[in-house]
Structures are given as C-alpha cells and as structure tokens.
C-alpha cells in the first residue's frame, strides 16, 4: 500500500519537477479567476440570470410595448436595466467572496501576490461583462426579429454599432464600480449595499442638490458619476461629455480603487 503511494508520488514529482521554478503564468491566474466566477451555485445562477433576464425583458417588450416602439433601441434599453444590476454583483462577489467565504486563505497562499490575483479578477470581470452584453444584445436582436415578425411591422435597427459599444462600456464601468466597492469594503453584503447606495441613493441626492444649489448644478456633470455615465446609454456623447465621464471616473473609480488596493495589499487575510 505504502509503496504504491510512494511510487505514484515519485511519478508526479518527476513529471512536475520542471515547473517548480517556473512562475505561475498570468494567463493561468486569469483563467482560474474566471472559472471561480461560475463554479459556485450562486455564481452559476448569477451568470445564468444574464441570459434569463435578457430573455424575460425581450419577451416583455414583445408582449407589452406598442407596435410603433418595437425597435432595437427599445429591446436594448429593456435588456440593459437588469444587466446593470447583475453584472456589478458578479464583479463584487468575485472579490468579496475571498474574504466573506474566506477562500482567500487558499487563493493568496497559492498565488502570494494579491495584486496579481486582483488584477486577474478585474480582467475576468471585464471579459464576463463584455461577453454577457454580447449575449444579451444577441437575445435582444433575436427578439427584435421575432417581435416584428409577429406584429408584421418593419424590423428597425435604430442603434448604431458605436452606440451599442457605448452601452457595453457603460455596463463595464458600472461593473468596475462594483469591483472597486468590493476591493474597498471586502465584504459581500456591505459591498452590495454600497453599490445600491451608489446607484440609487446618490443620484437622487445629487439631483435634489442640483435643483437647489447652483454651484452643484454647474459641477454635477463633472463630479456625478451616474449623471456622466447616463450619456453613454443615451448615445449622445460629445467630446465635452467624454471629459465629464473621464473626470467622474477618476474621482469615483480610479482613486478609490487605488486607495482600496493599497489597503488590501497591507491587510491581513484571516
């Protein structure tokens, strides 16, 4: 019994010996982190819900939208809303589960460079975000074809490729906001609450303030991330709007993420 075990151990030792001094390639870390977004029950259904909600939203448009509004833009808008909720959750959980589920103990001992792991998670999140949006938009396109065939109205493709790319970008940015909150808060429940405060409570407060204080009204476009992001969905991005978006992204995404990463690198994993 013990000799059998010893032999198999020797065999593995010989097989792997060239890799002991080889650094784990980044592509492998990304592939593993990507896999970890799907391989839990919650992760699996979160990803499935991308397709499910896109289908439901498409179905709802076909059933209830007036025939005159049965255009691709309507489908894209209907699908976009659930995406803007689901995708950030995927990003948040990919980071926070390492702490809340404590799997970080293994993750960060197998790859003892937290920056590499978090970077891989960010790449994975963007890949998932873009992939999900492509799937969702394809479902919407199918809905547009089927829906107009049912009603007998002409099939209208009123969204340019540029605008669709802007919608994808808007969703990826929203996802990265979730990612940032995950890095800063490092707790699943806390980060999810934080995300809803950021996307639901802050815009309302900002709007109220803008209506009542002229100084905020002037600054809002530069500082209010949700406000600046809105242009991407509307498809009316002038160069000034890009400048607004860049500034707001710097304030709400880049700087907090940098601070959060610094704190995370120095923190303890328990």
């Amino acid at each position: 019994m013990s000799t059998v075990t010893a032999n198999s151990m020797d065999a593995v030792r010989e097989k792997k010996s060239p890799t002991v001094d080889q650094r784990i390639p980044t592509s492998r870390v990304v592939a593993v982190e990507l896999r970890k977004m799907f391989d839990t029950r919650s992760g699996f259904w979160l990803m499935m819900s991308v397709a499910i909600t896109a289908t439901l939203a498409t179905g709802a448009v076909i059933l209830w939208a007036p025939d005159s509004e049965l255009t691709y833009d309507t489908f894209a808008a209907a699908i976009g809303f659930p995406m803007s909720v689901i995708l950030p959750m995927v990003a948040i959980l990919s980071v926070t589960s390492e702490w809340t589920q404590r799997s970080g103990l293994s993750t960060f001992t197998l790859v003892p460079h937290r920056g590499r792991v978090i970077g891989a998670k960010a790449v994975g999140a963007v890949l998932v975000g873009v992939g999900s949006m492509v799937v969702a938009m394809a479902i919407g396109a199918l809905g547009n074809i089927v829906g107009t065939a049912i009603t007998g109205t002409p099939t209208i493709w009123d969204d340019s490729f540029l605008h669709l790319s802007e919608i994808v970008l808007a969703n990826v940015l929203g996802m990265l906001i979730g990612f940032m909150l995950g890095v800063v808060i490092r707790n699943s429940a806390g980060a999810i609450v934080g995300y809803f405060v950021f996307t639901l409570v802050l815009p309302t407060l900002s709007g109220l303030l803008a209506a009542n204080a002229s100084w905020w009204h002037d600054a809002q476009a530069w500082v209010d991330f949700n406000f600046a992001q809105g242009g991407l969905f509307d498809g009316e991005m002038a160069s000034r709007d890009w400048a607004h978006l860049a500034t707001a992204t710097m304030i709400w995404l880049v700087i907090p993420l940098a601070v959060g990463l610094r704190l995370m690198l120095r923190s303890e994993v328990k």
């Binding site: 839990t40 919650s42 589960s97 404590r102 799997s103 103990l105 293994s106 001992t109």
Partner: peptide, 12 residues
C-alpha cells in the same frame, strides 16, 4: 498549507 479547513467557499 492548511490553516483553516473551514476557510473554503461553501458553495463549491
């Protein structure tokens, strides 16, 4: 390394 056997994602 085995520091805490319970420190794994419960859903895996």
């Amino acid at each position: 390394v085995l520091l805490d056997a319970s420190a794994q994602h419960a859903g895996r």
